[in-house]
Simulated scan of single mutants.
Amino acid sequence: MKTLLDSSTKLPRRSLLIAGMAGLAGLGLTACGKSAEDSQQALVPAEIDPRSTCDLDGMLLADYPGPKAQIFYEGTPQPLFFCDTVELFNTLLRPEQVRAVRAAFVQDMGLADWDQPRGHWFEAKNGLYVLGSKRHGSMGPTLASFSREDQAQAFIKSWGGRLLRYAEIRPEMVDLSGGALHDSRM
């Protein structure tokens, strides 16, 4: 019985070795592609609980009204939470933000209770945002987040503001500096 590596085989050993290595490399790339794809599919927003805190200021998320947010960074299995969408966008739009973001999620305020929002997460980049409404979040004026335009328009009709898409939000709209200076309640 002859084996593929016998000297009488028509394919030289070198060709078989190269073909075998190319096949293994192809399998490795396929496996890498699947695992990266699987990790993206497996990424789901985490739910806040009574102990969840904002990663910027340590505030308890459950103690404050308005939309919350979270970012999953590359290499980090747990998200960083934000007690307000303004904090999320302030973080994402800073020029020094260089960490690779796997996903950012916000709450759909067309479905969530404004005063005690839980659940109803969706990808921030797919959202519609209302800037300048009379409703405040944990940091004061906020960007109300919605997954559907009709719900955002109904919110605007009740609370005022203007509709923005994710890409329309600019750093000057989410500036966190000096917020306490303009808060007359403090």
Rank of each mutant, 00 (worst) to 15 (best):
S52I: 05
G28H: 10
D57Q: 00
D63V: 00
L5V: 12
I48N: 03
P45C: 06
K10L: 10
L80Q: 04
E149R: 15
K10R: 04
I169C: 10
K134D: 12
L164H: 12
F105Q: 13
D175E: 14
L61R: 03
T142V: 14
L88K: 12
G179Q: 12
A100I: 15
P12S: 09
F155E: 01
A62H: 02
S35Q: 07
G132A: 12
V101F: 05
S147G: 09
D55V: 02
S145P: 11
T76Q: 13
W114G: 15
I156V: 11
R102D: 15
P12M: 01
L16I: 13
L163E: 10
Q40Y: 01
Q151V: 06
G127S: 10
F146D: 07
W159L: 07
G161R: 09
P50I: 05
D55Q: 09
N126K: 12
A152E: 06
R94V: 03
E172M: 01
R148P: 01
G66N: 02
L17V: 08
D175L: 04
P141F: 04
P117N: 15
F82W: 12
L27M: 09
A42V: 00
P141Y: 13
D183K: 11
D63S: 07
A103M: 15
D115S: 13
M59E: 00
C54P: 11
A100R: 12
S158W: 09
D63E: 06
G75Y: 13
S158V: 11
K157R: 13
L5F: 10
M173C: 08
I156F: 02
K157H: 09
L181K: 02
Q151K: 15
F155T: 02
I169S: 07
S177I: 02
R14N: 06
S15I: 14
R148C: 01
K125A: 08
